[in-house]
């Protein structure tokens, strides 16, 4: 190979280049893992690859459009009626909730404990792409322009889904509670026992390690977020205990639970701004 002037270019040997690139990768990984040194670069570069993501999500999106167009008036009416009924049922429950909330504030005042501020929420749609196998992450169509932040809780109508771990301009990635790298502090709804729920990598199972055989826990118990650690607001359903294995040879119980949120159904999730972390506008 020659350069412009006909001189032979001496390229570094492939082994040298290999060593360089491996070192570069290792440096990047360390920088990326240790805090958020690279989040700016990441956000910028992620915009460049967004078209690929968009293209990959197209088939499903197009399928959705076609489906919507083919939906007959009858099914739409049916659906509308169903939603109408659901809506009024929820409104009825909300009335009660408001009374309870007022009572709760009064009691808190009596106790002198801090007031809880209501959470604000925004609906985000899933961008239908599959990510790295054996990790549990989703892409949502809201980003920094919607004031999404890293660590923001993501829920659906049934419980906690996960938290935002990477914010782009138009999209963000959320790590689900089932991701093997995720943990969330919870309390047992029945008796207030505090523990932590870890993801397993399976889509329908989380584990609850570090509970000793003396712990008061049963199958069917509901785990709700405890609010410890500061990321998640307290009181949202997380998982329900499905199986407890008591092995006399083990120091801890082996407990499996099923996430309450429908992690692999549905196309929408809610991003919430707990308490006073509300965005300036866009509230509902």
């Amino acid at each position: 190979m020659t350069d412009l002037f006909g001189k032979a270019i001496t390229r570094p040997s492939s082994l040298t280049r290999l060593a360089l690139l491996v070192a570069l990768s290792a440096t990047l990984m360390v920088l990326d893992h240790q805090g958020n040194h690279l989040s700016k670069i990441r956000t910028t570069l992620a915009v460049l690859v967004y078209p690929i993501q968009f293209a990959a999500a197209l088939p499903v999106r197009a399928g959705g459009w076609v489906w919507e167009m083919l939906a007959t008036e009858k099914t739409l009416r049916e659906r509308n009626r169903q939603l109408q009924a659901e809506h009024s049922a929820l409104l009825a429950r909300l009335q009660k909730l408001e009374a309870l909330e007022a009572e709760n504030t009064r009691l808190r005042d009596l106790l002198g404990s801090a007031e809880r501020v209501a959470d604000r929420a925004m609906v985000a749609e899933l961008v239908e792409v599959s990510l790295e196998p054996f990790t549990r992450k989703i892409v949502v169509d809201k980003g920094s322009r919607d004031e999404v932040y890293v660590g923001q809780p993501v829920i659906d109508t049934y419980g906690i889904v996960g938290q935002i771990t990477e914010v782009g301009v138009m999209t963000s990635k959320s790590t689900l509670i089932t991701d093997p790298g995720h943990a969330i502090p919870v309390v047992l709804n029945r008796n207030g026992l505090r523990t932590v729920v870890f993801g397993t990598g399976a889509f329908d199972r989380v584990s609850v390690p570090y509970l000793t055989p003396s712990a008061d826990i049963q199958e069917g118990d509901l785990l709700v977020s405890s609010g410890m650690g500061g990321n998640f607001p307290p009181g949202y359903p997380v998982a329900q205990i499905t199986e407890i294995i008591r092995d006399a040879n083990e120091a801890f119980l082996k407990i499996s639970a099923k996430p309450m949120a429908r992690l692999n159904y549905g196309k929408e999730v809610l991003l919430i701004w707990p308490g006073d972390r509300a965005p300036h506008e866009r509230e509902f």
Partner: peptide
């Protein structure tokens, strides 16, 4: 790595 949101450099390595 960028597409998957994995550790930057993980797939690269």
């Amino acid at each position: 790595d960028l597409l998957y949101g994995s550790l930057l450099g993980q797939h690269a390595l």
